[in-house]
């Protein structure tokens, strides 16, 4: 089914227009990477704080307020540029196991980030009130940092698999 969908997509006029425009893929990939820089940095700032290894500077609710909007804006840019790249070369992404692994890791990171956002909005001290909550925060922080690194690596590895 994926194969027939990706063949159909590759045959559309839009896909052929993008694929035949030499500057299209590098330009869209450049925007994609700039959005990666924004989201990786924002995710790192939030989750290093959640991990509890850095104690200087603003607290978690403050960091979450300044950096969460960047996560969602960058995610929107990544989605749009990602869709454009997929339209251009459907088989490269849709028929690639690494691409689907990347999508799975993204879903996990987004769900955990939404969980953090909701918890901190309802109770700014949610992840610092008890030692159990601090451990929960540290576990989520570590998971998110690993997911983020895994997503970037998987994204680059799509070109080789």
């Amino acid at each position: 089914m994926l194969e027939s969908f990706s063949n159909w997509l590759a045959a559309t006029a839009l896909s052929q227009l993008f694929a035949s425009t030499s500057w299209f893929v590098p330009t869209v990939q450049t925007v994609h990477i700039l959005a990666i820089a924004a989201i990786v940095t924002a995710i790192a700032m939030i989750n290093i704080r959640l991990l509890g290894v850095v104690r200087r500077g603003p607290d978690l609710p403050h960091i979450a307020r300044s950096f969460l909007p960047w996560v969602w804006i960058a995610l929107a840019v990544l989605f749009v540029t990602g869709v454009l790249l997929t339209i251009t070369e459907p088989a490269r992404e849709l028929q690639n196991g690494t691409f689907w692994l990347k999508m799975l890791l993204i879903v996990a990171l987004v769900l955990l980030t939404l969980l953090v956002q909701r918890s901190v909005r309802r109770d700014p001290g949610y992840f610092s009130s008890t030692s159990g909550r601090r451990r929960l925060g540290a576990a989520i922080g570590a998971a998110n940092l690993l997911l983020c690194a895994g997503i970037v690596a998987a994204g680059r590895l799509i070109a080789y698999t």
Partner: peptide
């Protein structure tokens, strides 16, 4: 076949932090 992609992933990940923090 895998060293180049591994270092490339590391390069992109660290570079993302550079660009993000500079921004």
């Amino acid at each position: 076949s895998w060293l180049f992609p591994i270092f490339e992933s590391l390069h992109v990940l660290a570079f993302a932090i550079v660009v993000g923090t500079v921004a």
